[in-house]
């Protein structure tokens, strides 16, 4: 290997004008496409392959950890026969209603509280106290008050999702650069214009942090709520399949939950990209 080789990249096999031509070029292009995918998802792929192989070979007890093809088969059967569709629908409804209610209350309330210092200071200790009280610990209280039906399930999810949204909205409003507000004031902007044109847009990134946290929390609480006193829903299916020793179905329900979480997060990231293009790295 000479200096020339190194200098022209030949030593590393990345020479572009090589006589071997097409084959190596094709390989280089494939590598260029595959490299970022592998570096990001390589471990996931490796984990899935390991799971499949080790259950097939018998390193792992297949009745506790069924091979992936059985899990995916159970998931497909559940969806195509419609058995799981009802569960998905009811779970989406519970978490969706709760999440939307938390958004509808949390964002306006947070925007208001963040601006009025006296209210924020008076309510902050109470909020911190509520936030630190696990929603799951309060679930029996909600059941006592609202019964074992839909209301208590939706309410416990609502309760848990409200605080991340509320607190990050308050934080976002409080963090707004006072110098920008002063600037707007010198151009004759009144309080409404300052709110609409400075405070609100400046708070959007912080609000999204809360929304993404809440979406994760919503699914977490959904499962817990559905494991207690429900006869439908994905959380119920996880529990029910385990009781009946339908282990592939149990894992299928767990997989479904993970996919729902990923989908919710992806939807929020997409919305955030659309709304906060200005804040994203190039």
């Amino acid at each position: 290997m000479s200096y020339e080789d190194i200098h022209h990249g030949r030593a590393y096999g990345i020479g572009v004008s090589h006589p071997e031509g097409h084959a190596s070029r094709w390989l280089a292009q494939t590598a260029a496409v595959a490299a970022p995918i592998l570096s990001r998802y390589g471990l996931v792929i490796g984990f899935l392959v390991f799971w499949q192989v080790s259950t097939n070979v018998g390193w792992i007890n297949a009745s506790v950890f069924p091979p992936l093809d059985q899990i995916i088969g159970a998931l497909w059967k559940g969806i195509s026969s419609g058995a799981l569709i009802d569960d998905i629908a009811i779970s989406l409804q519970r978490s969706g209603i709760a999440f939307l209610a938390a958004v509808a209350l949390g964002i306006p309330l947070g925007l208001f509280m963040g601006q009025v210092r006296a209210i924020e200071q008076a309510l902050d200790p109470l909020l911190q106290f509520f936030r630190q009280t696990s929603a799951l610990a309060l679930y029996p209280v909600f059941i006592l008050l609202l019964g074992l039906g839909e209301a208590s399930k939706v309410f416990v999810i609502f309760w848990a999702t409200l605080f991340p949204i509320l607190l990050s909205t308050i934080g976002g409003v409080k963090e707004v650069d006072a110098k920008l507000i002063e600037m707007a004031r010198t151009y004759g902007a009144g309080s409404l214009a300052i709110f609409r044109r400075v405070v609100l847009p400046a708070s959007v990134p912080a609000i999204f942090v809360g929304l993404r946290l809440s979406a994760t929390t919503a699914l977490l609480l959904l499962i817990a709520a559905e494991m207690i006193g429900a006869n439908k829903g994905i959380g119920f299916q996880v529990m029910n399949a385990q009781y009946n020793f339908q282990i592939p179905l149990m894992f299928a329900a767990i997989l479904l939950l993970a996919l729902m979480g990923l989908a919710a997060n992806a939807a929020l990231v997409l919305l955030q990209r659309k709304l906060c293009r200005w804040a994203l790295p190039q």
Partner: peptide, 26 residues
């Protein structure tokens, strides 16, 4: 009109909309 030491631009507005900010508030 005041020009501050820091530009104090609104990060979510483009250059042209930042320049037009005072006009819009009017």
């Amino acid at each position: 009109a005041v020009i501050f030491q820091e530009p104090r631009l609104l990060p979510w507005l483009t250059v042209i909309d930042n320049i037009g900010f005072g006009l819009e508030t009017r």
